[in-house]
Every structure is written in C-alpha cells, then in structure tokens.
C-alpha cells in the first residue's frame, strides 16, 4: 500500500487536485473563485494524463538520429490530448468570464448566492401579484 502510494504520487496528487477543483466549482458562491476551481479541476486531469504518458528513461517521440525502435520513445498521444484539452478549457474559462462580467454589470456583485436571493425576491413579488389577481374557484 505504502509503496504503491509512493510510486503513484503524481496520480494521487492529480486526483486530490481534481476533487479540490470540483468542490470549488460546485460550492464557491463567488463566480471568480468558481472559475479558478474549474481551471484547477481541468489542470488536474492534464497532470494525470502527463504523468501517465511519461515513462522514465524514454525519449520524446521526435525521430532523430535514425533510431526507429518504438520502445525507446514515449507515446505522443497523451501529450496531444493535454494540448487539445487545454484549448477546450481555455475557451470554456473565457466564456465563464464573459458571463461573470455580464452578471456583474447587471447585479453589481460576484456572489451567486446574493444574485439568487435577489431573483427569488423578485419572483416572490410576482407570485404575490399573480395570487392577488387569481381569484379562488375561478380556474379548473
């Protein structure tokens, strides 16, 4: 058990970071901290992929010096996945930031809980208005 923790410390670190990011994304009321949580979560996956993709003692998969034996190189696909994943997470983060700016302009706060409270208050007022209009026994 102890030995496997030591050999897989990168994967364990990645999973811990993933959980930290996920909890932040879900539970932080502050929108900017949510985005930071999202980025930590995505980076954790890239750390996991990079750690899994690296084999100690092997070279980067660039064909030089006439060495054609595949077992001397590492697999380039995990690195490719990390690059694609980074592109995806950058665009998603940008979209979230744009949304945050829109919300801040509208409600002058970054706290999602406060925004939800404001909205609920508005809705309760609307409902009272409707209930006053809707007479009992009037509708099926």
């Amino acid at each position: 058990m102890g030995a496997s923790i030591l050999t897989n410390y990168e994967e364990i670190g990645a999973v811990l970071l993933f959980v930290i990011g996920l909890v932040n994304l879900l539970l932080q009321p502050n929108l900017v901290k949510k985005i930071i949580g999202l980025d930590i979560m995505d980076s954790a996956v890239y750390l996991f992929l990079a750690a899994k993709g690296y084999i100690a003692g092997r070279a980067a998969p660039i064909y030089t010096g006439g060495v054609t034996d595949a077992s001397l190189y590492i697999n380039p696909i995990p690195a490719g996945l990390v690059l694609t994943g980074i592109v995806v997470s950058v665009s998603v983060s940008a979209l979230m930031m744009a949304l945050t700016i829109c919300l801040y302009r509208q409600y002058h706060t970054l706290n999602l809980d406060e925004i939800m409270m404001l909205l609920r208050r508005q809705e309760a007022e609307q409902l009272q208005h409707l209930a006053a209009e809707e007479r009992p026994g009037d509708l099926p």
Binding site: L25, V92, L99, M116
Partner: peptide, 16 residues
C-alpha cells in the same frame, strides 16, 4: 445570465 451560469457550472462538472 443566471440560467446560463447555472447551466455552465453543472455542465462543466459533467465535463470534468
């Protein structure tokens, strides 16, 4: 915007 943020948060948890 609030609906979009709520959608994005849930959806990004799913993506992660």
């Amino acid at each position: 915007y609030v609906s979009a943020v709520r959608y994005m948060v849930m959806s990004l948890v799913g993506s992660g």
